[in-house]
Nucleic acid binder design. Structure first.
Lengths: 233, 233
DNA sequence: GTCTTTCTTGTTGTGTACAACATCGCATAA
DNA sequence: TTATGCGATGTTGTACACAACAAGAAAGAC
């Protein structure tokens, strides 16, 4: 895909096999999540291996894990295809994500340190900037980054891992649906959510942050469904 | 490990690569979960591949996924080691599992059909039989089978998958701790839990079943912690 | 005797060649 | 024209050879 000299440099510097794996895994997951690889894209193991400067063997490990995550699907004789996201199939995932986000505020809530607080403020600023110049890809990136900051509110590591898994299964739906919706409006709503949660975090009320997040997740999904229904009619 | 002709037969019959993968994955996960491979066991890729009648390549996929599940750890030059389970590290997992089990009764509860009911009754019978002749390995197997029956109470597939993941991360702790505890007593308690949940299910009160399960998970973990503390003193 | 060094052995990680398979284009026959 | 076969091409799946590495044994120096 890209020339991306930094990437191959990082891969060469990496000492252990696990480091190399994580670089490839994170890179591929990110590309899928921001629609550099839209649903249906056919990836070639050989091409990817060449780009990363490795053989197919280590690359395949990353692809297999992403397949287990539900982001890819390998079919012999055809290729490795980026899975599609279907709103109906995602209903259950969203229901579960709602509950888990509430748990983030309730299970082992962590009093936010200075670093975390600074990260929230940074996200808030980026959201405000995005309001002035809405852009789909930047919106997607912000959504991902905000998720990672948000889960810092809990000390429960398994909860973080499970939430991350489900997040990456669903986050692409926005990139698919946004064209049918009002991007500026969604950005404004998202900025509002971030502001509200950041305020709650600054007050040290982690549980409130969880409830706000849950509420916005619920409303966001309702809007998605509404627009989908309106569009198919 | 075993000769196990049925296994290699099933692997040869399997048409697709995914079928072969699932057979190997399930087999290995089961062996780890019932302590055929106790924590610390060093598995050899070559030996396993030979036993399964395949090459290292397809076997490695199963091992890599199990590593991502947290059940194995591969170290170059050393081997593939079955991970240990530590009670303290599992505290967070248990907290999350408690909440998730409650969700099973609350999120998309499914009115149990005849098949499910029969499965519950079967488990209850096996539990009663186990009370007459307590056995650690049968106890472990029953625990696993009961889990799979219990998650039939929800229609939320992502919840089932996440619960399964966490279950297999924790279930081995019983095999590690039981020697320090009273097996007969634990079996009796487990049989009581199963009877109570089966009754709730027969009444169609799925939410109650979830709460009972949550309560027993909590008490079970408390007993584990208590015995661990008593043992280290 | 004890410590150090080197070698042997066994393991996972990686590269590569080939098998199995699906898909598309194209020629050919009806 | 249309249907059919078939072959060329590109893909993932599998097998195998070797590299990289860790650990223990054995031999040698002191």
């Amino acid at each position: 895909m890209k020339p991306s000299d930094e990437l191959v440099a990082a891969l060469e510097e990496a000492g252990s096999a696990q480091e190399r794996f994580e670089i490839m895994y994170d890179t591929l997951r990110d590309r899928i999540s921001v629609s550099d690889y839209p649903p249906g894209t056919r990836l070639s193991e050989e091409a990817l291996a060449a780009e990363f400067g490795v053989s197919r063997s280590p690359l395949r490990k990353a692809l297999k894990i992403l397949e287990a995550d539900g982001l890819l699907q390998s079919v012999q004789g055809v290729g490795t295809i980026v899975t599609d996201v279907d709103l109906d199939e995602l209903t259950q995932v969203y229901q579960l994500r709602m509950e888990l986000n509430e748990l983030v505020g309730r299970l082992s809530p962590k009093h936010p340190d200075e670093t975390t607080l600074a990260l929230f403020e940074d996200i808030r600023k980026r959201a405000e900037a995005l309001r002035s110049a809405p852009d789909m890809k930047i919106f997607a990136r912000l959504n991902i980054d905000f998720f990672h900051v948000f889960v810092r509110l809990t000390d429960n590591q398994p909860l973080v891992e499970v939430s991350e898994r489900l997040f990456y299964q669903t986050c692409r739906i926005w990139l698919k649906m946004i064209p049918m919706m009002d991007l500026a409006e969604e950005v404004a709503i998202f900025a509002g959510e971030i502001a509200a949660i950041t305020d709650a975090v600054r007050l040290g009320d982690t549980e409130a942050a969880g409830h706000i997040r849950r509420a916005h997740l619920s409303m966001g999904f309702a809007r998605l469904k509404g627009h989908a229904r309106r569009h198919t009619l």
